[in-house]
């Protein structure tokens, strides 16, 4: 007999939804049953049908008529739509992983604070820059208190969608909050840069951290950073340090690169891959927790 799996659905049949579809097909603990969109002709829904999933083309209302299809729902629509979806899904008793910047639920970075959020009914994934850099801020902070952390995320222009572009302040503001609330820095700052070079560049991130005077423990910090790299790699295989961290007085500079898995989105868009990979990781942790409870 197959091991029990928890049923999940994807709301949103765009690029992110389709990439999630590819990733979920490989999960040991999640069973993707359905993809929900609003356009029966959309590429995403066509692909869902081809892969044998239930394709619902009447939006969230269509899903709510068949709530048995999933216990966990990924929302890969938009921040605006999510506000409505969040209420309806909460009422229906579903756990929700919010891929949009709506920030209704607690911020989660799987490598840092998954454990404390297993009972939350709505999880927000902050931003791509946050998913890539907050683990490193935390890795430094768990050794030496971080007074200030600053991150610079550079992504290829092609991987920045119209939503990100029209609302770029949301990225800097939400990421800064995440650096403090989840990374543990006393103060945080985030910068995002779009680079149009062809062929498109991989997502790059630089993390600067200033630790409290007199607390720099170079060997321990580097060790902690390398452990964190492995931890994130366990769910984002293309996540890596570009070089060894550079330490200068009480400042640590960390250079990161994220290559996407190339499931549906191109490899250069590591910024999108890290979001879908983190989403799947959160759902798997939810599922394991739920399955463990059923066994008791």
């Amino acid at each position: 007999m197959d091991l029990a799996k928890v049923k999940v659905a994807i709301l949103g049949s765009g690029n992110i939804g389709t990439d999630l579809m590819m990733k979920l097909g490989r999960s040991d603990v999640l069973e993707l049953t359905s993809v929900i969109g609003i356009d029966p002709e959309s590429e995403g829904l066509k692909r869902a049908r081809e892969l044998g999933y239930t394709a619902i083309d009447t939006g969230i209302e269509g899903f709510l008529e068949r709530p048995e299809l999933a216990d966990i729902v990924f929302d890969a629509t938009s921040a605006k739509a999510h506000i409505r979806h969040a209420k309806l899904l909460k009422k229906a008793g579903k756990k929700v992983i919010d891929m949009t910047p709506a920030a209704r639920g607690p911020f989660v970075v799987p490598a840092v604070n998954m454990g404390t959020n297993l009972d939350a009914d709505n999880i927000n994934l902050i931003t791509c820059g946050g998913q890539a850099t907050i683990p490193m801020v935390h890795a430094v902070n768990r050794v030496s208190p971080v007074e200030y952390a600053e991150i610079v995320a550079t992504i290829s222009s092609r991987s920045a969608g119209p939503g990100t572009r029209a609302n770029i302040d949301e990225f800097t503001e939400t990421t800064s909050r995440g650096i403090v609330e989840i990374g543990g820095a006393k103060k945080g700052k985030a910068i995002i840069i779009l680079n149009p070079a062809e062929p498109p560049i991989l997502m790059r991130n630089t993390v600067y951290a200033l630790v409290e005077e007199g607390t720099m423990d170079e060997a321990k910090i580097v060790e902690s950073i390398k452990q964190m790299e492995k931890n994130v790699q366990s769910y984002v295989p293309g996540y890596r340090l570009r070089t060894d961290p550079i330490i200068d007085g009480n400042k640590i500079t960390i250079f990161l690169e994220v290559e996407g898995a190339g499931d549906y989105l191109p490899k250069y868009s590591g910024n999108l891959d890290i979001m879908t990979a983190a989403g799947v990781k959160v759902a798997e942790e939810f599922a394991k927790n739920q399955l463990a409870k059923q066994l008791v």
């Binding site: 610079v152 550079t154 840069i193 680079n195 149009p196 630089t206 550079i246 500079t253 250079f255």
Partner: peptide, 18 residues
């Protein structure tokens, strides 16, 4: 050569190290 754009100052140390 790498077509770095304005604001990518972090590339300077990265490239220098390389």
């Amino acid at each position: 050569k790498r077509k770095v754009v304005g604001g990518q100052e972090d590339m300077i140390v990265d490239v220098a190290a390389e």
